[in-house]
């Protein structure tokens, strides 16, 4: 019997190591297979030009329209989400600090919203768009994507802001600060790295999402010059190019996938860097 339990333990430890290995292997496999396949087709021309005539038959041009479109869209959506989301996160943790049950309920709501798939937001954005008589445009995309990332941003900020000790708030009140001053001057500074991380996280979500923009942002070969115009986005450009039967165009899809992966990796590294860098402004208790 004693032997059996040791054998069992050994087997399970081996299985656990295997599973951990599988996860690491999966990440490496994803990153390397994308880069291996996409890098040869990646060229300077692709990054700096918009599609020319016959681009979708393998002729000249690049995906600058999609790169710029994606950046516009995500920056806009992140901005809107920040303007609405940041006050919510502060409100929950500074103004409503006494109403624990209510805050708990709001958190619960936000968690529910976080779980809603982006395609549902896309369908909802589409109904909104029709309701207001808009066409597919950058603006419609920004509104839809910001709805989609607000819960993510608020919850990420909330997780950081809730660690601010109440003593810090009390100290600033006792010095005569109003509540909004305590929120925007003290809490913001104390949680700065966490807030940057939350913003970058939401930005990454926004730039990578395809399902929500599918309905609302449209697709065009031009770089949009106003909010009312449709816009290309990187995930959709990958998706559409991959659907082509022409090998040249497919290779470009892989190259675009490399671009998107690199953007995501840069965001991930940046958020790590920022969270370390501004750590020193914190007051430690």
């Amino acid at each position: 019997m004693a032997k059996f339990k040791n054998i069992e333990e050994k087997i399970f430890i081996a299985l656990m190591r295997l599973s951990t290995g599988i996860i690491v292997f999966a990440l490496l496999l994803i990153v390397f297979s994308i880069i291996y396949k996409g890098l040869p087709s990646l060229s300077w021309e692709m990054l700096t030009q918009t599609p020319k005539g016959g681009f979708y038959f393998g002729k000249e041009g690049g995906i600058l329209n999609a790169i710029i479109g994606s950046l516009y869209l995500s920056a806009g959506a992140t901005l809107v989400a920040f303007v609405i989301g940041f006050p919510v996160a502060l409100f929950m943790n500074v103004y409503l600090i006494k109403y624990k049950r209510f805050v708990q309920m709001v958190r619960f709501f936000l968690d529910l919203l976080w779980g809603v798939p982006s395609i549902v937001y896309g369908a909802f954005g589409f109904t909104l768009m029709i309701f207001f008589g808009m066409k597919t445009s950058l603006l419609a995309g920004i509104v839809t994507v910001s709805l989609f990332i607000i819960p993510i941003m608020v919850r990420a900020m909330d997780e950081v802001i809730k660690t601010v000790p109440i003593g810090l708030l009390e100290a600033s009140y006792s010095l005569g600060a109003t509540r909004s001053e305590a929120a925007y001057k003290i809490v913001l500074r104390q949680c700065f790295p966490g807030i940057i991380t939350a913003i970058l996280l939401s930005f990454g979500r926004a730039i990578g999402d395809a399902a929500a923009v599918l309905f609302t942002t449209g697709y065009t070969d031009h770089i949009p010059t106003s909010l009312g115009q449709p816009s290309a986005t990187l995930p959709l450009s990958i998706f559409f190019q991959l659907g082509s039967p022409i090998a040249e165009v497919q290779n470009r899809a892989y190259a675009s996938a490399v671009v998107l992966t690199i953007i995501i990796l840069i965001i991930s590294i940046l958020s790590r860097y920022f969270s370390k860098r501004y750590e020193k402004h914190r007051i430690n208790f």
Binding site: I23, L27, I34, G208, L260, T261, S268, R272
Partner: peptide, 22 residues
């Protein structure tokens, strides 16, 4: 493992799709 999990969580859906096809 934390960065590994974070990066996996951050990879866009469409990239997973491309990987699936590849």
């Amino acid at each position: 493992m934390h960065p590994v999990i974070d990066i996996l969580a951050g990879i866009p859906s469409v990239i997973y799709g491309v990987w699936g096809i590849l």
